[in-house]
Design a protein around this nucleic acid. Sequence first.
DNA 1: TACTGTATATTGTAGGACTATATAATAAAA
DNA 2: TTTTATTATATAGTCCTACAATATACAGTA
Lengths: 261, 261
Amino acid sequence: MAGALEEVAMDRQIKSFGLKPIAGALIQQGNGKRLRGSLAQQLAVQILTGVLPEGHMFPGEIEYAEQIGISRSALREAFRTLSAKGLVDSRPKAGTRVSPRRHWSLLDPDLLAWQFEAEPSLKFLHDLFELRMIVEPSAAELAAERRTDEQVQAMRNSLDAMARHGLATEAGRLADQQFHMVMLEASRNDAVIALASSIMAAIAWTTIYKQRKRELPRDPIPDHRALFDAVAAGDPRAAHAAMAELIRLALIDTEISLQPD
Amino acid sequence: MAGALEEVAMDRQIKSFGLKPIAGALIQQGNGKRLRGSLAQQLAVQILTGVLPEGHMFPGEIEYAEQIGISRSALREAFRTLSAKGLVDSRPKAGTRVSPRRHWSLLDPDLLAWQFEAEPSLKFLHDLFELRMIVEPSAAELAAERRTDEQVQAMRNSLDAMARHGLATEAGRLADQQFHMVMLEASRNDAVIALASSIMAAIAWTTIYKQRKRELPRDPIPDHRALFDAVAAGDPRAAHAAMAELIRLALIDTEISLQPD
DNA sequence: TACTGTATATTGTAGGACTATATAATAAAA
DNA sequence: TTTTATTATATAGTCCTACAATATACAGTA
């Protein structure tokens, strides 16, 4: 799996051999994904993991496209995607280079997803949960103050479905996500929604891994129900506390799942 | 100023006349910006403001490129940028359309900047400050726990520079930003840094507008110094409170500056 | 009705030519 | 010598054309 990634990383060395690889050979194009998308993802991961360090300069577009065996158009569109996420910066005459770390949009949904696919660093995982611990309890607090009766009903339905199916099933996990999504929307704050839903989507990926290794030691339903009760009752303080507890447990689960056997 | 934007919005109607506009005529290309960048910004603003509603379908690329008078390549790269920020979605045969609101990366630095350039909605401004009120006091709390002596010194220097020049000067505002940036870095949480620095950069734009209308009624230095003292003393609780107060005042200032005379 | 295959519109990729621009080297001026 | 203006040049930016891949819609069949 790491083979293709390393190959791309070694392009600079390869070039001196003058070999012209077959089109697409160096790009690991997964599933039905587009070529530029696969390249963007691979480069993004390499940048985020430091394989391509800050300030790294890419070869010229014509040369680089030839090296990795794709057209200049596709390469440029991949660069455009990376540029939009603050990972690279292109200028005429100066070339394209990896941007300084502080410009990276670490909370971008795609970057989060790609990072979780490629095993996130423990440090970043810790940072992410620390941020969740700051934001989501307050979001729950807002939800308790602003939720509509319809939203309470929707949450109740999701919670019931979650209890019926359990988190081991696809349906159960879907209900879990819906539960949290409705509560987020109840906060009526677009900025908070954008932030929390990005993180939620990324974390959802890890849930699959968690389930794979071993069964969760706890039943997650009681904690969810405590949160629901607080929001339904319109009790911001209790909602805050319940959400904080939920995240604390989620962190423990995630840490367990990432520990080597 | 709104003229050019509206013209682009009316492309669909124009097409029936079969007029072929001169290259670039419909794109308001500001300063040294690239063509695709200007288009991406204009479209992004139109999407965020609802001129181009969720689900809106763009004409085919060849046709659309001709209408607005740019090449298909440039149009596609603009779409790529918008796609990376979750604003649009392109599929073969299906075409390109405006994505549902929940996919938009509202906290993306570019989107924030573009939104503030084009007068942000009061609702979103409110949401943003509410989020700041949630995140930044806690960030200050972390900074108080984790700051190094070097960071304290750097903050002291910035604060002094800020006091010397005042917020009316460019140098003063720069010192202000540096002060907050160093404190963010002291939190040692990359996720928090990415989030808060995005918002900070966007808000900095409005500072210019604030200064234009009338002088600020207060001296901002004392509040900053209270925050600095708390962080320097390693007092998380006081840092939290001081930062909350700072944001509260910033909100008031911003609201004043946006009120019609 | 349901399903399976085919047609087709639309984006995706390719490749080549020319333009604009930022950097660096050079020359001129102070 | 230092600074400023000029020129050269490498590189991304834009344009154009052609073709491939793919998802949708539609027709045909069981």
